[in-house]
Design a binder for these strands. Structure first.
Lengths: 344, 344
DNA sequence: ATTGGCACTCGCACGGAATGAGTGCCAGGC
DNA sequence: GCCTGGCACTCATTCCGTGCGAGTGCCAAT
């Protein structure tokens, strides 16, 4: 790929095809885009592009259509990510402003993203693995029945009921509560587990010292709550009606996608690792591990408070999609979402 | 509608059409079903059925297709709800058995229902309006920061953070906690609000007595939590890939449905009032309030512990669907789900 | 390297004919 | 009175065959 103009031709093809959904021919190209050359010249370039595998012709006498490889080159080198307009920015901010809690924020983001891109939007709830413990509360609901409340930095609250064998006095509970909070408050939940075990059996005590059964049970329950929730990666999906934009091929394209959307595990894998720092990743067609999704692309990025990528968010759509627009929207929503999490 | 055989003909038409998805003619009818008459006779019956509006012919020389009215008659008078087989019952029980918490139960039910019926399944989370308060907990996270925890009979736990203006001592809190629990424990949440307000300003006190600001604030927050959640009717949706069974008409049938599925409010309205006591309601095509959903039917019922209809659950699919099968599956899942809620 | 010209290819839309499933009706039989 | 076989008729669907035109590839000229 040496020639400069050829790249312009490829870009023009992609843009036209995305807009019209129809194979684009040499003549239409020079008309619609202002490349100052004749159709014949463009034809030569197109032949070369086809040779190199960036575009393909569905049949002999039809226009050209970008291949996955063509889209790839397009997003890698040919897009100038257009920033959102001021109006759009205001709309985004306003839309997210009214949210009352974390769930609401995520729901609103999903809806927003699907409306901006007119694609299927997927937003993962902030994972807890990176979040920190804000507070742990122990409450005796009954003499042998404890309620554990775990409050995390993301604003999420987890609770567990714990039955214990022996009655627990209010003082014991208060002491334990204080100990636990001293140990884990502010800790990343991955580390909190270790700290909790230490409480049940302090390292400075002799190794054969009897461990405190209450503390051990509470620690176990808390650790379990943290782990459980770490793997419980909830996601929010919206805009499925935009699947109509896939065109006709329901069985080959839409149905596998609908199935993937229900398999949240698959979906998360598809969205990939959360990438921080405003980097938007794009997976085009068969680049992913799923054969059936060879006609779908994913545009995703990470988000989270303080530029830490706690979770991912993105859109899923046909390979023939508006990549620059989707990337811009995904990036913008991730940014605003991160900002909101910052404040909270 | 006098003739007995005509009804058999209608039933046969519905069954055949549901199976083949194609207009069914007189000849095919007598072959596939054992009605011991000639095609000509059937034709006469069909003419009569068409006259009365139970079936219709898409065009002159094609077979007949049931109308909404035909389906209605079919479900009202012609179906014998076939009970689930023992194997199916075991599968259902096994599938739901493994659930760990309420969310999991609902999720599993959704998946189960969509697999049983091969339709889109919708399960509403148990509404709280009928549920009772099991326990209220007040925790001082900081001197002026309270955590309210509301535990309901459904096993759902709601929490609210409350900032107060004045520092609260542990004793004050304990007293208030005791008072609140005495007042509301076991109460239906609809009544709990009244009881809470009474605490803030006892009726036996002079009307102009200063009310307790702390109690008032807590009461307000709790009431808000209850109300909030009463209207926050979460639902779980599964099996959207079964929408493929709608056939080709994506834009006229599938898309409106996808949109409805995202509008949870619409969806809940569609499912209708929770009907208790094992009654399954069926809404066929345009019988509902939504023009766009004239090609979809809803089979739903209520469920909840102790035969109280706390929430609804059902399937949504094309008017041409297997009503007896769907009704049986919906009823069975609702029954098992209720039983599980009973135990909890 | 670019361009105009030109022959060529094929998918697709259009039109007419053949096909056949299915109907409506009638006259005769149980 | 109801059922049945027969028969003419209808009309959506399928299948060709044709013409059209968008679009290509190549070549010779600039």
């Amino acid at each position: 790929m040496q020639n400069e103009r050829r790249l312009s031709v490829l870009r023009a093809i992609v843009e036209d095809y995305v807009k019209t959904e129809e194979p684009v021919g040499s003549k239409a190209l020079v008309e619609r885009h202002g490349l100052g050359v004749s159709p014949a010249t463009v034809r030569n370039d197109m032949a070369a592009l086809e040779e190199e595998g960036y575009i393909t012709a569905p049949h002999t006498s039809a226009g050209r259509v970008p291949t996955d490889k063509g889209y790839r080159l397009f997003v890698d080198r040919l897009t100038t990510v257009k920033p959102m307009t001021a109006a759009e920015k205001r709309a985004i901010a306003g839309f997210l402003e009214g949210a009352v809690d974390l769930d609401d924020v995520v729901t609103r983001s999903t809806r927003l993203l699907s409306q901006l891109t007119r694609q299927v939007a997927v937003v993962q709830y902030p994972t807890l693995s990176r979040s920190t413990v804000r507070h742990v509360e122990l409450v005796a609901l009954a003499p042998t029945r404890l309620l554990l409340v775990l409050i995390l930095s993301t604003g999420r609250v987890e609770q567990r009921l714990l039955e214990v064998t022996e009655e627990v006095s209010e003082e014991t509970l208060a002491t334990l509560r204080a100990k636990i909070n001293t140990a884990v408050a502010g800790a990343v939940i991955a580390d909190a587990g270790e700290a909790l075990r230490t409480i049940a059996q302090p390292p400075d005590a002799p190794a054969d010292a009897p461990q405190d059964p209450l503390a051990a049970a509470v620690a176990e329950a808390l650790i379990e709550a943290m782990n459980d929730h770490r793997s419980d990666e909830r996601i929010s999906i919206g805009g499925t009606s935009n699947l109509a934009r896939f065109g006709d091929n329901f069985d080959t394209a839409v149905r596998p996608l609908l199935e993937a959307l229900e398999e949240h595990v698959v979906l998360l894998k598809l969205m990939g690792e959360a990438t921080a720092g405003g980097l938007v990743t794009v997976r085009i067609g068969a680049e992913g591990p799923y054969q059936e999704l060879s006609q779908t692309s994913v545009v995703a990025t990470g988000y989270g408070p303080g530029d830490e990528a706690l979770a991912t968010l993105g859109v899923v759509g046909p390979t023939r999609m508006d990549y620059p627009g989707s990337m811009a929207a995904v990036r913008a929503v991730a940014r605003y979402l991160s900002r909101i999490l910052d404040e909270a």
